Simulated assay, not measured.
Amino acid sequence: MKLIRNISFPFMPVYYAVTSLRNSLYDLGLKKSTSYNFPIICVGNLSVGGTGKTPMIEYLIGLLKKDYKVATLSRGYKRKTKGFQLANKFSTVESIGDEPFQFYNKFKSEILVAVDADRTHGINQLRELDNAPDVVLLDDAFQHRKVKAGMNILLTTYNNPYFLDYVLPTGNLREPRKGAKRADIIVVTKCPINLSDEEKSKFLISIAPESFQHVFFSSINYSNYIISSENKISLDTVTNFTLVTGIANANPLVEFLNEKRLQFEHLNFKDHHEFTEEDILALEKKELIITTEKDFMRLKQYDSLKNKLFYLPITVTINNEQDINKLIKDFITS
């Protein structure tokens, strides 16, 4: 992969120029962005995958669902359907995508979950519902400039911050670093639990936030329990298992399990992996499988894995949580 990135270096200026031009056209008003008179919060990143958008969306759902009618709107990556889809009891990973399916399974009686590659059309469809949402959370839409969200939350990881990265195809950035200036809130994700104030200060210097921008640091919290469709057991009682991951970066999870000195083999697939019949036959031979919640959504449909398939829940902790919560709620009520 590194060799391919190095070979592709001459193409980086072309990608940089194209994405910069596109953003400039939106900034100058030459390409249309649609604004709305109700709260829309966009959660996204500059890089390709793996920054923790799903846990952040779930954090916002948990913060807002008691006081507001909340809807999530995603494009539904790798789904088999087209156009606008509103999740219901008949929805599957194939019809709405794995992450929206996860949102629906976890919060189905409390929020609306929708997918549409055209976010403008999706928002309009949601607003036409009889039970229209008060707040729309746009999942992975920072580059979807046709919608002008009222609040933009940009995520970047502690180990691979955008300010040390390059645009595609040499690096992982979808657009130049200067795109971060569109964010209202920047969250540095997947930080060490005990990140020092000195390290935070170094990050702030590198980010160089604008006067209107707020920067926060968050960490992943792994549960002490693993959950199946029917059971919940302590992770400490598990002796040997197979870890199955189909996410952009499994390293934090692997490090957590290693720190607990658990014995496991790791089957690491690409992000949003679509499990084949051959994959399932191989997994049927395993005694115990632990996976991520997103991959669990893809695998739980197989009855042959039902009694051996568990996922490890995660949540995020944000430093100065009261401050970020206030910013978000103040935006909604403004």
Rank of each mutant, 00 (worst) to 15 (best):
K2H: 13
N6I: 15
N6S: 15
F11K: 11
Y15T: 06
S20K: 07
R22F: 04
S24V: 10
L30F: 12
K32L: 03
K32A: 03
S33E: 05
F38D: 08
P39E: 05
I40F: 05
I41A: 02
C42W: 11
C42S: 15
C42M: 11
V43Y: 06
N45P: 09
S47F: 02
V48K: 05
T51W: 07
P55M: 05
K66P: 04
L73Q: 01
S74H: 05
G76S: 06
K78V: 12
K80Y: 02
K80R: 08
F84T: 03
Q85I: 10
F90Q: 12
V93Y: 06
Y104K: 06
K108V: 09
V113H: 01
V113Q: 00
V113I: 00
A114G: 04
A117D: 15
D118P: 05
D118F: 00
T120R: 13
G122L: 04
G122E: 08
I123F: 00
L126D: 04
L126T: 00
D139Q: 05
A141I: 00
G150C: 04
N152S: 09
L154N: 03
F163L: 02
D165Y: 09
D165L: 03
R174A: 05
P176C: 12
R177D: 11
K181H: 14
V187D: 06
K190Q: 12
P192Q: 10
L195C: 00
E198W: 14
K202N: 04
Q213L: 02
S218W: 10
I220L: 14
Y222L: 11
S228N: 12
S229C: 15
E230G: 07
I233P: 13
D236I: 09
D236F: 11
T237E: 15
T237I: 15
V238E: 13
T239Q: 13
F241Q: 04
T242G: 05
G246T: 03
A248L: 02
N249A: 11
V254N: 12
E259L: 15
E265H: 07
H266N: 11
L267I: 07
F269P: 03
K270N: 14
H272E: 01
T276G: 11
A282N: 11
L283Q: 08
E284F: 07
I289C: 10
I290R: 00
T291F: 08
T292A: 10
D295V: 01
D295Q: 01
K300T: 04
L305Q: 03
L309D: 06
P313C: 13
V316Q: 08
T317K: 09
N320I: 05
D323E: 13
K326T: 08
K329P: 01
T333A: 09
